[in-house]
Amino acid sequence: MAKHDHALLAPGRDGSGRTLHAPSDGRSRARLPHVDDRLAPPETRVEYLDGAELFAAPADPPHAIQHFDLTYVLGAHVAKDYRGAVDMLTRTDEASDYAPDASIFAQKPDRSGRRRLEEMAFEVCDKQSLAVPTSKARRLIERGVRRVFCILVKQRRVLEWSRETDGWRPLPKDAVIEDPCLVRPLPIQALLDATSSDDAVARALLDKRVPALEQAVAEGEARGEARGEARGEARGEARGEARGAALAEVRATQEAITTVLQSRGLAIPAEVARAVAACNDVNKLRRWLKKAVTAATAAAVVAGSRRKR
């Protein structure tokens, strides 16, 4: 892994993976509603913050594009035993129930069998005032969320909430986020640049040791070795590595499509899974990946992929 000047470590990262709770405002945590006890009606765009009703409006580019890039990168970086979510409502207190743009939480249910509070939360901010994400971040931290980030679309900056200052802290663009929720350090640049996103996703999927991806890399290396014996070791290895890299990109994109659909809670029919697995056209897979972010169903992602005769 390339060295970075800044590594942003998780608060309380002592190997235990425990969740740290910020000092509260005097309210008893035992009296708080469960994070899944709804105040806002699910499957609508209504949220509540300190008793005030908010409307989460749909987005235009570049805000909408940033949402996709965030989901794309996070989906690949979620570590084992954790799950990612998009627009998942969280009840922070009696008067607040809203959905961070993306979040990561422990997969194992709590003692009552219900989902656990997220450990990391991300907000994307474009035209709206930073006051709203600020209020949301403060409530999430008070509830017990360990880390909250905000991506400023126009400024192309990433902020992290600071308990010490009770405010946002700008993060250097060459920094990485290290956290037990992540399979590998997440470069800040990967959240801001599409090219860096692809590189970070590929590395994260390799670190996850995805069987199909490892097999593809091994097959590419094997083909390279075989051709090297027939045409010369140097030439064979070069071609084998190139084809292995191309096949690795195909497999990584296939995995990313599945990851995005699963993170959105969409069922993936067998025929869709077969279509994705059988496609070796990386350009087509990239188009499907973009459609996976907003498609109403998994079938809609690959719809129309066959040419009419």
Rank of each mutant, 00 (worst) to 15 (best):
A296G: 15
R169M: 11
L74D: 09
V217S: 12
A131K: 06
L49R: 04
V132H: 08
V148L: 09
L205N: 04
Q107S: 14
R116V: 07
V272D: 10
A275S: 12
H34F: 12
L9Q: 13
N280S: 14
T258Q: 14
L261Y: 06
L285E: 05
P172N: 09
R116G: 01
D198P: 02
F68P: 11
V276E: 09
R157K: 15
G26E: 00
A59V: 09
S162G: 05
T71K: 04
P11K: 03
R307V: 05
R31N: 11
E233D: 14
E123F: 11
C150I: 04
S162Q: 00
Y98C: 11
I257L: 03
A270R: 12
D97L: 06
A59L: 10
E178D: 13
P180Y: 01
T92M: 01
A22L: 08
Y48I: 00
T19C: 14
I188P: 03
A190P: 03
S305D: 15
S96I: 04
K208Y: 04
A299N: 08
A303S: 08
H21C: 12
L117E: 01
E237F: 06
R146L: 14
V210P: 01
K308T: 10
R139D: 12
H21Q: 10
D110Q: 07
P100Y: 05
T258L: 14
Y48V: 00
D25A: 15
H21W: 06
A256I: 01
E178G: 08
P11G: 15
K291W: 00
V210Y: 05
L70H: 06
R251N: 10
A267H: 11
S197P: 01
E43G: 10
R138N: 11
D69I: 11
Y82A: 15
A278Q: 09
R116S: 05
Y82I: 02
E53C: 02
